[in-house]
Simulated scan of single mutants.
Amino acid sequence: MTQIIPNLGEISHQYDALFVDLWGCVHNGVKALPEAVAALQTYRSGGGKVVLVTNSPRPRAGVMKQLIHFGVPDDSWDTIATSGDSARSAMYRGVVGEKVYFIGEHRDQDFFKPLDILENPVDIRQVPLEEAEGIVCAGPFDPMAEPEVMRPQFLYAKQKGLKLLCANPDIVVDRGEAREWCAGALAALYTEMGGESLYFGKPHPPIYDLARRRLSALGTPIADDRILAIGDGILTDISGAMGEDIDSLFITGGLAREETKTSQDPDVEALNLYLQKEMAAPTYAIGFLR
């Protein structure tokens, strides 16, 4: 049964590394969450390693700039693994072809920056849908618009047999008080319509492979039973951790704050009902990372 804990320090001595989600855990899409930052700083001061594992479609360098903007200090983390980096690597290996139709906002163009770590990367070109060999989706054109607006384009793409590379499997995120759609919502619609979507972020294995490589690069390899995954996404962070056989800490005051009736801490009965409904079993739960 999931154990509700008062703070990270209650269990942190059991783990040598943390895989920590960003949005909803360390920041709210607008600014850093001070208690979460302090908890990670304390954990690192005791020798623990913090890997930020995010479904952001941005490259690692882009996420680092975003963290500075939000006020997340660099002494609260050690390294970063992004869904964007994992997906970019796949794109430059040619998994959806050379000519791609891009779905995303203008700020997501960093996704197409050259990737120097690959030998002989594919020459990727952005083209109209009619000329495309595949689709790359970093998010909706308009994050406030319903995913259904893409149905006509997806019907055409499905008929052409195009694969969709999803750079962010999240369905929604909360930016401050506003809830926005993510690339995962579009990929889910495309799959529902009979198209093929390829995922590289949580809960899928590629991003965990990347996170382990980034962790190992810090020094001594750390076994999975000494890693704790932290996140507020039951279908991404917690499902992914369960799939990787990694212990997890569910932040109930994020995406599921209403379902778990979280003010400072989750309501026990509401939490149990929610976990039963989602068929999830995080090792621990807490209202907010602190």
Rank of each mutant, 00 (worst) to 15 (best):
Q3Y: 11
I5M: 06
P6L: 13
P6C: 10
N7C: 10
G9K: 02
G9I: 00
G9P: 00
G9C: 03
E10Q: 12
I11K: 12
H13Q: 13
D16V: 03
A17C: 04
A17F: 00
V20L: 13
L22P: 00
L22D: 00
W23H: 03
W23R: 00
C25Q: 02
V26W: 09
V26Y: 04
H27G: 10
N28D: 08
G29T: 03
V30S: 08
K31C: 14
A32L: 06
A36L: 03
A39G: 05
A39L: 05
L40W: 03
T42D: 15
Y43N: 02
G46F: 10
G47T: 04
K49M: 08
K49E: 05
L52R: 04
V53T: 05
T54W: 03
N55K: 09
S56D: 10
A61M: 10
A61R: 15
G62R: 02
G62Y: 04
V63D: 06
M64F: 11
K65G: 10
K65V: 11
Q66W: 07
Q66T: 11
Q66K: 15
H69F: 15
G71Q: 04
D74A: 14
D74F: 12
S76Q: 12
W77A: 04
D78W: 04
D78C: 09
T79A: 14
T79I: 09
A81I: 03
G84E: 11
D85S: 08
D85R: 02
